[in-house]
Amino acid sequence: KEFRPGDKVVLPPYGVGVVAGIAQRSVSGVSRAYYQVDFPGSRSKAYVPVEAPHSVGLRKAL
């Protein structure tokens, strides 16, 4: 896996977040693995496909 729990990442347009782990989510009846990204200071979460994280701009924070 490219990202691990605890990694600081950037996800446009949300900003800097932390990978909380990998979650299985069902979309249109198909279960897939997603990185769960939490954003400190907020209750917001984002789910990014493990198979294509760069397709939505997910990258490691510098």
Rank of each mutant, 00 (worst) to 15 (best):
Q36K: 12
H54G: 10
G6T: 03
V50L: 07
A20Y: 08
S42G: 11
L58K: 03
S31E: 08
R25F: 14
P13G: 15
P40N: 07
V48I: 08
A52Q: 07
V48S: 00
F3S: 00
V56R: 10
E2R: 11
Y14K: 03
S28Q: 14
A61Y: 15
F39H: 01
R4K: 12
V10G: 00
D38S: 13
R43E: 11
H54L: 08
L58A: 04
R4G: 06
R4W: 09
V56W: 11
P12S: 07
L11S: 02
V16T: 07
S31F: 12
V19I: 15
R59W: 04
A23C: 15
A20L: 10
E2V: 12
V16E: 10
K1D: 13
P53S: 13
Q24G: 04
V27P: 04
G17E: 00
Q24T: 13
L62W: 10
A46P: 01
L11Q: 06
P40D: 08
Q36A: 09
H54I: 06
P12I: 07
Y47M: 06
Y34C: 04
P49Q: 05
Q36R: 11
G57K: 05
S55I: 11
G15I: 02
A52R: 07
V37I: 15
G15D: 01
A33L: 14
R4T: 07
Y34P: 01
L62R: 09
K60W: 09
P53T: 12
P13N: 08
A46T: 06
L58S: 03
A23Y: 14
V56M: 12
R59P: 03
G41H: 13
A33M: 13
L11F: 07
P49G: 03
I22F: 06
G57W: 04
R43D: 12
V18K: 04
I22R: 02
H54D: 12
H54Y: 10
P5F: 09
S28V: 07
S31T: 14
G6N: 03
D7M: 07
V10L: 07
S28I: 04
Q36P: 01
K1M: 15
Y47K: 00
V27Q: 07
D38A: 12
V27W: 10
R4Y: 09
K45E: 05
Y35R: 02
G41S: 10
V19E: 01
E51D: 14
A52W: 09
Y14C: 11
V56Q: 08
Y34M: 04
G15C: 15
G17Q: 01
V48H: 15
K8S: 08
V18A: 02
G6C: 05
R43L: 12
G15V: 01
G41Q: 11
D7C: 10
A52V: 05
Y34G: 00
F3I: 05
G17L: 02
S42W: 10
V30T: 08
S42Y: 10
A33E: 11
D38M: 13
V56E: 06
V18R: 08
R59M: 07
S55M: 10
V50Y: 06
V18G: 01
Q36T: 09
G29S: 03
K45N: 06
G17Y: 02
Y35D: 01
V37D: 00
R59F: 06
R25H: 07
K60Y: 10
A33V: 10
S26V: 14
R25D: 03
A46K: 10
R4Q: 11
S26L: 13
G15S: 02
Y47F: 11
Y35I: 10
Q36V: 15
S28P: 02
K8E: 07
G21V: 05
Y35Q: 00
R59N: 04
Y47D: 02
P12Q: 07
G21A: 11
G17H: 05
K45I: 12
P12E: 09
E51Y: 07
A23H: 12
R43H: 12
E51N: 10
P40S: 07
E51P: 03
G6W: 02
V37L: 06
K45M: 12
P40H: 09
V30F: 08
P40A: 10
V16S: 06
V27M: 08
V37A: 00
G21T: 06
E2W: 12
G6V: 00
K45V: 15
P5G: 03
V16L: 15
Y35K: 00
A23R: 14
I22N: 00
A33G: 05
V50P: 00
P5M: 12
I22H: 02
L62Y: 13
I22D: 01
G15E: 00
V9N: 02
G29A: 02
A23T: 14
D38H: 12
V9H: 01
R32D: 02
S26H: 08
K60Q: 08
P5W: 04
D38E: 13
S31G: 05
V10P: 01
Q24C: 15
P5Y: 08
S44R: 14
G21R: 13
V16R: 09
G17P: 02
G6E: 01
R25E: 03
G17M: 02
S26F: 13
E2F: 13
G57Y: 04
G57A: 05
V56C: 14
V48P: 00
S28F: 11
V9M: 03
K1Q: 14
P53M: 06
S26P: 05
P53D: 05
D7N: 03
Y34R: 00
V16G: 04
S26D: 10
K1P: 14
V30I: 10
P40Q: 08
S42T: 13
E51L: 07
Y34T: 01
R32S: 07
S31N: 10
A61G: 04
V16H: 11
L62H: 11
V56G: 08
K1E: 15
Q24M: 15
S42V: 09
P49T: 05
E2Q: 11
F39G: 00
P49M: 06
A61C: 15
L62G: 13
P12G: 04
P49E: 05
R25V: 12
K60R: 10
D38C: 15
S26T: 15
S28T: 06
V30Q: 09
V19K: 00
D7S: 04
F39C: 15
H54T: 08
S44Y: 15
V10S: 06
G41P: 13
Y47G: 00
A61L: 15
Y14I: 04
Y34Q: 01
S31H: 08
V50H: 02
R59L: 07
F39T: 01
A20W: 08
V9L: 03
Q24K: 11
V18Y: 13
Q36G: 01
G6P: 02
S31Y: 13
V27H: 09
G29N: 04
G21N: 07
H54F: 09
S31C: 14
E51F: 06
D38V: 15
S55W: 07
V48M: 03
F39L: 04
V19Q: 01
